[in-house]
């Protein structure tokens, strides 16, 4: 139990250090933009594929239930609510956790066990700023963009399904879809995704930065980064949904 609280305090200090270092120059602009590219561009293909299939399949699965009540015309707005409010931020976060979180944990972990982080320190460079701050910033800033992109692609998947079964146009579909969506939903999507991105960045960097025991430690860091991120994302989802629904 004592070890657990020591760990929590250690993570708290790690996060506090991030907020201290993020505002203090010199800034690692180049590495931050590298990480934007790594997190963003390299995740686009899997986000596109997953988003499209999610929209398509979810629409298909919902169709039969709505058809029983003759309410298939509600499909666009139902899909918009499901995708914008829940699926896009959540699925995007889980994909980033699996793809990027594990990569961050493994990369920083292997740098730790091969003394590359110490090499940065002795060459008078701040490894925390170069490795940790840049990656947490990247996951925090890019996750909302990817989630919004997945929302759009998911809606396109839903549109393809609707188009195949009913006579509609893209304009009519989106007009129908956004009847039930407010700006609050878009703000929440951005906010939630930023929180998930921050969580993924912190989990990956913390586990990598504290890796030990050689290659075994690197594997463990990658694995723990993903598991902890996913666990925390679900907890955060539950909390955010509960709080937002009180204000809706």
């Amino acid at each position: 139990m004592k070890a657990f609280f020591i760990r929590i305090y250690d993570i708290y200090q790690f996060i506090a250090r991030f907020f201290r270092e993020v505002f203090i120059p010199p800034y690692e602009y180049k590495e931050v933009f590298n990480q934007f590219f790594e997190v963003g561009i390299r995740s686009l293909s899997i986000i596109s594929l997953t988003g499209f299939i999610t929209g398509l399949v979810f629409t298909q699965q919902s169709r039969s239930s709505l058809a029983e009540f003759g309410a298939t015309s509600w499909l666009p707005s139902l899909m918009a609510i499901a995708i914008i409010r829940a699926l896009a931020p959540l699925v995007t976060a889980l994909i980033i956790a699996g793809k990027v979180g594990s990569n961050i944990g493994a990369e920083i972990g292997s740098m730790k066990v091969t003394e590359q982080i110490e090499a940065m320190e002795v060459s008078s460079t701040n490894p925390f700023k170069f490795l940790v701050v840049s990656r947490i910033l990247a996951t925090t800033c890019i996750a909302p963009v990817l989630a919004a992109y997945m929302g759009f692609i998911g809606m396109m998947g839903a549109f393809v399904n609707v188009l195949r079964n009913e006579q509609t146009s893209l304009t009519a579909f989106f007009e129908q879809a956004f009847i039930k969506i407010s700006f609050l939903d878009v703000y929440i999507l951005v906010l939630k995704s930023a929180v998930y991105g921050f969580t993924i960045g912190v989990a990956g960097c913390y586990n990598g930065y504290n890796a030990d025991h050689g290659t075994v430690g690197v594997g463990r860091a990658a694995n723990t980064s993903v598991v902890v991120s996913m666990f925390l994302i679900f907890i955060e989802e539950m909390i955010i949904v509960t709080v937002v629904n009180k204000f809706r």
């Binding site: 003394e115 590359q116 002795v122």
Partner: peptide, 11 residues
Amino acid sequence: GFSFQSSALYD
């Protein structure tokens, strides 16, 4: 200057 046993070059 610190020369590491593992060289510690950035991979």
